[in-house]
Simulated assay, not measured.
Amino acid sequence: MKRLLIAAGGGGDAIATAMVHAALHGPDEPALVLTYAWERLVVDPVPGPRRPSDFTGTVTAGPTLRLVTPRSAPRPPAGSLLPRLSAGLRPALGLLDPYAGASGLARQIEEAAAYCEAGHVDVVDVGGDILADGTEPTLRSPLGDALVLAACARTGIPTSVHVAGPGLDSEVPEAALLPLLGDPLHTLTHADTLSVQAVFDWHPSEAGALLVAAARGIRGVCGTRDAPHPVTLGDASPHVYRLTLARALEINPLARALAESASLADAERASERVCGFSEIARERARAAQLAQEAGESPGGGTAPSEPRPLPRPLPRPLPERFAEWERRTADSGIAYVTTRRIAEELALSPAQLTALRRHLSTATPARHTPPLWRLAAVEA
């Protein structure tokens, strides 16, 4: 027998789900975590979520359910960190395929419950966009969470919904969430992070990193990439809250609208009606923009040759570039940053990021407060 959990948002939520499971039930309790392979363009250049046919080496656990293992691999051009993540987490990972809408997800959850011999489902979301009402101006990715709620309701299996780190995903503000959550079920501690700490050496999840940092006692203003406002780690940040499925459905109108969805296209249309946008359409537009910037033509070839650019000055040493960026970022009131923000804002290659991490880890004072980086105080 295994406990059955669902990482509602995919991507880094699987890490947080493993951590919450270890905190509530012990790290050695057997478990299966169902998660989307929907890891956004920073990992996967193909817009939208991946399905089982996008992987090799998965393990069949039911007619429509597949497990991702360290021997699995995404089929190019798709990308995914789930195979590597399956090697770094203790729970097994199962793949959620949303292409048949809530009805298809419900079948997969039922198959997973039979595989685990589980009579209960624990849904885990970092940040709290699983409780979005669709009107939040900062809402970016509500669809996966809402589909999970709708699918769990279709199964009829008793389900609990857990929100960890309210507001840490920069989608629904903490102040809007706390009145909905009641008293915390658990407060994560440093000990609760030990089972997942190593994955943040390479995984780009920011909400998960902030949750781990909060559990380790870090407090202050944290800068993430591509978020409208910094996140402040405070007293509520390491808390885990539990709601009933009925209460989550009451709060989330998109989940209710997805109840009868039978395809991902159905789900997109529901999101457009309720929230005013489709995050998959946004990903398609962004992927097309990135392809254009890379010089690819719409047909997949390269764009016509451009005039030869003028020679550029030699790049400055990386520590010097970081010091200037650090000063500018700290002046905006930010005390901590994620690895992903550093890498993206400085446009670092993997090798450059490794070199910078080594430099910052040995600097005086050392900047690394795993899994975040502390900015040095800037003198007036």
Rank of each mutant, 00 (worst) to 15 (best):
K2Y: 02
R3W: 02
I6D: 07
G11T: 10
A16K: 11
A23M: 02
H25I: 01
P27N: 01
A31N: 03
L32Y: 15
L32C: 08
L34S: 03
E39T: 07
L41C: 06
V46D: 06
P47C: 12
G48D: 04
G48F: 08
R51P: 11
R51A: 05
P52Q: 13
P52V: 06
S53N: 04
S53I: 05
T56S: 13
T60P: 08
A61V: 15
A61F: 15
G62H: 12
P63C: 02
L65T: 13
L65P: 01
L67A: 13
L67I: 05
V68F: 02
P70F: 07
P70N: 06
R75H: 08
L81N: 11
L85V: 14
S86R: 11
R90A: 15
R90C: 07
P91D: 15
L95S: 09
L95M: 06
L95F: 03
L96D: 09
Q108S: 10
E111F: 12
A112L: 01
A114V: 15
A114E: 12
C116N: 11
A118L: 09
G119N: 09
H120Q: 04
V121I: 09
V124W: 02
V126P: 06
V126C: 00
G127W: 11
G128L: 06
T135C: 14
L139F: 10
L139H: 12
S141R: 14
V148T: 11
A151H: 14
A153N: 13
R154A: 15
G156P: 06
P158R: 00
S160I: 03
A164Y: 02
L168D: 04
E174Y: 03
E174M: 01
A175P: 04
A175K: 02
L181D: 02
L185V: 00
L188V: 13
H190C: 06
H190E: 08
L194D: 13
V199L: 05
F200G: 07
H203N: 12
A209G: 03
A213Y: 10
V221F: 08
P228G: 10
T232G: 10
T232Q: 12
P238V: 11
H239S: 12
V240Q: 09
R242L: 03
A246W: 05
A248W: 06
P253C: 14
L258A: 09
E260D: 15
S261D: 11
S263G: 06
D266G: 13
E268W: 04
R273E: 00
G276N: 06
S278A: 08
E279D: 14
R282E: 01
Q289K: 00
L290Q: 01
E293I: 04
P298S: 07
G299V: 12
S305C: 10
E306I: 10
P307S: 07
R308N: 09
R308Q: 10
P309E: 05
L310P: 04
P311S: 09
P313G: 13
L318F: 03
A323W: 12
R327E: 10
T329I: 08
D331R: 15
S332E: 10
G333R: 14
G333Y: 15
I334A: 07
V337S: 09
R341E: 04
R341Y: 02
R341M: 01
I342N: 06
E345G: 03
L356Y: 05
R357P: 01
R358M: 00
R358V: 03
H359S: 10
T362E: 02
T364C: 00
P365H: 07
A366T: 14
H368M: 05
H368P: 00
T369K: 04
P371K: 08
W373Q: 04
W373H: 00
E379N: 08
